[in-house]
Structures are given as C-alpha cells and as structure tokens.
Design a protein around this nucleic acid. Structure first.
Length: 270
DNA sequence: AGTGGCTCCTGAGCGC
DNA sequence: TGCGCTCAGGAGCCAC
C-alpha cells in the first residue's frame, strides 16, 4: 500500500511530466472514485503550477487557485500514459493533459480524487486533521517526543494514527519498530527516553530508505513510470511472518494489533 | 474526547 | 478443477 515514501516517489515522478501541463478533460469509469465531478469544469484548459505531498495525499495545484487532491488508500496507482492509450486494467479515472494522460487505477476502489478551491481543500479532504510531517523543517525528536508522550496505548496503533504523525502505514510502522528494537504492543507511556529516541531514529531511517529505494513494491505499488520500487528488498519484518529474522534467525511472530497484521521478532524487539 | 466496530471493495489463498 | 469461504486493510463514520 502506498505510504509516505511511495507517495513521495510518485510526486517526484509527476513533477517533471506534468507541471506546466494543461488539463483538457477526463473520463470516469467508476463514479465513486471522484468527489464533485462537476467542479472539474473549473480546471478546463488550466495549467498545473505545482505538485506536492502532505502525508499520503497528493496535491496538484492549478493556476486558478484550484487544487486536485488524490489519496490512493490501499491499491490506488497513478500511471503516466500517452494520450489515447487504451483503458488500463482497473482504471477508474483518466485525466487528460495536453502533454500526457494520467490513469488512476484502483483494484479495491478505496482511493479518492477531490477537487476544491485552494481556500478549503484541506478541510474538505480531511487533510486538515493530519499531524506532523516527518520531513518538514520544524520536525525533530523534540517534536516527536512532545506528540507521543502526551498519548497512551500501544505504539503500533499510535504510529498509524495520521492525526499524530502523517504518512506512516503498516509497512513502515512495523519496519520502524524493528529498527528501534521495540515490540509493537509496548505501551508508549512505558518507553524510556532512550527507546523513544530509537523509535524516532528507526522511523526516520526506514522512511528515508523507502524514498531512496523509490518505494516498496510488495503487492500493489508501481510508480507512475511503471517502474517498481526496490525497497521490498530492504524489509526485515513486513510480510515475513513465520520466516527467520534476518538478524538473529528466530522465527518472526505474526500477530494482529490495532486491527492490522503485525510482524515482529521476539528476540530482537523488547 | 476517545474507542471499538462497521463500512467500502476485490483478488488471493485456502480447504474440501 | 472449481467452488465458497475468509482475509487483507486506510480512513471515515457512527454509537456509546
């Protein structure tokens, strides 16, 4: 599933291809994928001035103060294609630009595309509720600690809470916890300062590695260019339940926490 | 305010 | 081989 590093990879690939491009029109193959279809008239012949990421959201800014926001949820993909390419597998929406087209494919149909004015796009998409942005300038261990020491409960659940820290999903939560040598079921209130620091460092390490490797292609992720990421080769625990730990050889435990499949090493993680 | 459970969806994987 | 069942899960929503 696309998380911060995958969405960042997508945005970086879209920028050179689409900034400056003019929107011509769209085709919708699954109505629910798009919120407020009629508003798309407002960007007809308008030009993209920038594309950016906030958490797992992609924001495409047009030159008339309109913003198209995309959230890929579980299985969404954005694929850059030539104009008039035949319909892609599971394609739900196609956005046509003067240069190229962008196919929105989504097997499970959980992904969404919104169109809003710059004034209220954050409120209308749920983006306004997002917590800290891991790679923003003002984010550091102090901030991280401030956010999480106010909370109670198991760490895995808190890491998945987008209103605290934006962009972490199941893959990077499990991997970050493994890096930090902390069990996912540990209560945040019982962590020592040193462990909290390890958690911060672990998360930042796995996110950076994910971005550097152009995302994790475990089941669904492919970049707009059609390329797969390489980060799946850097995973220690995600989808490895029952297999030997790559550090110590112990059989990795697969369990369920906060309603999510969770894998950890009972020997390495305390 | 916080939490647990339901919902949206479809393909993969399993047992028989 | 094929049927039917269960599972996977990000996040919004609702009841409590």
């Amino acid at each position: 599933m696309p998380e911060l590093p995958e969405v960042e990879t997508i945005v970086r690939e879209l920028i050179p291809e689409l900034v400056g491009a003019r929107f011509l029109g769209m085709k919708i193959f699954w109505n629910k994928s798009v919120n407020s279809v009629k508003n798309f008239d407002k960007i007809k012949n308008k030009k993209i001035i920038s594309i950016s990421r906030r958490g797992k959201f992609i924001n495409i800014f047009f030159d008339n103060e309109i913003v198209v926001t995309i959230h890929l949820r579980m299985t969404g993909r954005l694929i850059l294609i030539n104009k008039n390419s035949p319909e892609l597998e599971y394609e739900r929406v196609r956005l046509d630009f003067d240069r190229r087209s962008l196919g929105f494919c989504d097997v499970r149909k959980f992904g969404r595309i919104w169109i809003n004015s710059k004034k209220d796009f954050e409120k209308n998409t749920g983006m306004a509720k997002l917590g800290a942005e891991p790679f923003s300038r003002d984010f550091n261990f102090h901030k991280f600690s401030e956010i999480f020491t106010k909370k109670k409960g198991n760490i895995k659940k808190l890491l998945l809470d987008q209103t605290l820290l934006a962009g972490i999903g199941n893959i990077y939560a499990d991997e970050g916890l493994f890096m930090a040598k902390i069990r996912p079921s540990r209560k945040i209130e019982n962590l020592k300062t040193r462990e909290l620091k390890n958690l911060y460092n672990g998360l930042m390490t796995v996110l950076k590695s994910g971005i550097k490797n152009l995302g994790t292609s475990v089941s669904d992720f492919i970049a707009p260019s059609g390329e797969k990421g390489k980060n799946q080769h850097a995973l220690f625990v995600y989808k490895r339940g029952g297999k030997p730990c790559l550090i110590c050889g112990y059989k990795l435990i697969k369990t369920k926490l906060a309603g999510r499949g969770t894998v950890y090493c009972e020997n390495c993680q305390k």
